[in-house]
Simulated assay, not measured.
Amino acid sequence: MSLNFIKRISFIYLLTLNISCSVQEKIENTDKVLIDIGDSLTAGSGGDGNSMSKVASDSLGSDWTVKNMGVGGENTLTIGARHGGIPMYIKQSITIPKDGSKVEIPSGLYSSYNNEKVLPLLQGSAGINPCRIDTIQCKLTRNQDKYYINRITPASTDYKTKKNSTILTSLSNEKEGVLTIFIGQNGGYASSSELLDQIDLFVKHKGNDNVIIITSHGNSTAEIVKLARDKYQSKYIDLKEYMNTYAIYDAIEFGLLPSNGEYPTVEDLDRMDKNKTPNTLLKDGIHFNSIGYELLGRLRYKKGKELGYW
């Protein structure tokens, strides 16, 4: 066997090994996805470009894909419809035209949780399209309080749906990586136990327990906190408690606020005594400013680190 032949075989082996390692690395990195689902507090409204998701993206680096799936104004049922944990459906049978033109959904969209109406696409469409009815890939749109749907790829025949047909969103297929569930500020539940039940459906749909659960600093109650903490334990963040106690002192320690004695202000301390978030961290009564979102983001990042997610 010649030396040149041996060299060629060695080169091919090393090339194959490198390609194999590269493919393996890509396969492993498919798990490095973080999806944040929620309302305007997840979206980062009032943060001047900052959000929990942005902080994570900056901290995790380019190896991770961070998807902010927060949409303002949505209650838990509408968020669940986008996520797929609580699917939405169309009550009546409709005919989806073969040519791709839009057809109105006459009575709107309903939640599979309690048959109440859901209202997606009011302030954003994160994760909805392309959606699917049975095997038909579609696009859901809204115009002047009416909902429409059309098939994306024209076909040879119209498609008639059955009554109570489910609409499955694009986001409903994304179950990889880590999911942060930050819902509840805008209602959609009749009791604390019902909120927890809905969170459970989000987690069940994901298919594993690689989750972080956050309850709102605005309307979270002692009962909600107890139920969520008892169920999800170390995977749970009580944002209300953090914002009312440690947050502003962390802001000073992190250099987000000056340490010259100006903060916390008298008003901040008064609000904290009343179990409310300091105004220094807020844009308005509910939404955080850039500093508030930075603190939220760091808190969530720390939790993920503790849980071994990253």
Rank of each mutant, 00 (worst) to 15 (best):
L227M: 13
G207L: 09
M243A: 01
K235F: 09
P264E: 10
A222M: 05
I291F: 04
A155V: 08
D273M: 12
K162E: 12
Y246E: 15
G297H: 08
V203C: 06
I286K: 11
M243R: 08
G285A: 13
Y246M: 13
I214K: 10
N260A: 10
H287N: 04
D268N: 00
F202C: 09
K204Y: 09
K283N: 11
S165L: 06
R271S: 07
S170T: 08
T180N: 10
L239V: 02
Y242K: 02
N164V: 01
S156Q: 10
I183C: 10
G188E: 12
P258D: 13
T180Y: 08
I237L: 14
V178G: 06
S192Q: 09
L282S: 04
Y263E: 08
L295C: 03
K276W: 06
T180Q: 11
E174D: 14
T245H: 05
K235G: 05
L168G: 07
S156L: 14
K302R: 15
Q198Y: 05
K240A: 03
K240H: 04
N186F: 07
E262V: 04
K175Q: 13
N244E: 13
Q185A: 14
E174A: 01
S192I: 04
L201D: 09
G285Q: 15
E174M: 03
E294I: 03
K160C: 09
P278D: 12
Y189P: 07
N164Y: 10
E223P: 03
E241V: 09
I183Q: 13
I248D: 01
I286G: 08
N260L: 06
I214G: 03
V266N: 11
M243L: 15
I167M: 08
Y301A: 12
L256R: 08
Y263V: 11
P264M: 00
S156G: 05
G188T: 02
A190C: 07
G297L: 05
Q198M: 15
D158W: 08
A251F: 05
E174V: 09
L168E: 12
K283F: 09
T161I: 05
G285D: 14
L295N: 01
N173Y: 14
E294F: 04
M243T: 02
K204G: 01
D200S: 13
F288C: 00
R300S: 08
Q185N: 11
N289F: 07
A222T: 12
K163E: 15
D209E: 11
L201Q: 14
D250C: 01
L295M: 06
M243I: 02
E223S: 10
L239M: 15
S290K: 01
E241C: 05
T166H: 04
S290M: 02
Y236T: 04
F182E: 08
R271K: 11
S259V: 09
L296R: 04
L239T: 06
V225W: 04
S234N: 15
I248S: 01
S193A: 15
L196D: 00
R229M: 06
E262K: 14
F202N: 04
T215H: 14
E294G: 03
G187D: 12
L179M: 11
P278E: 13
S192K: 01
T277I: 07
L195D: 10
L195T: 08
L282Y: 00
I224E: 01
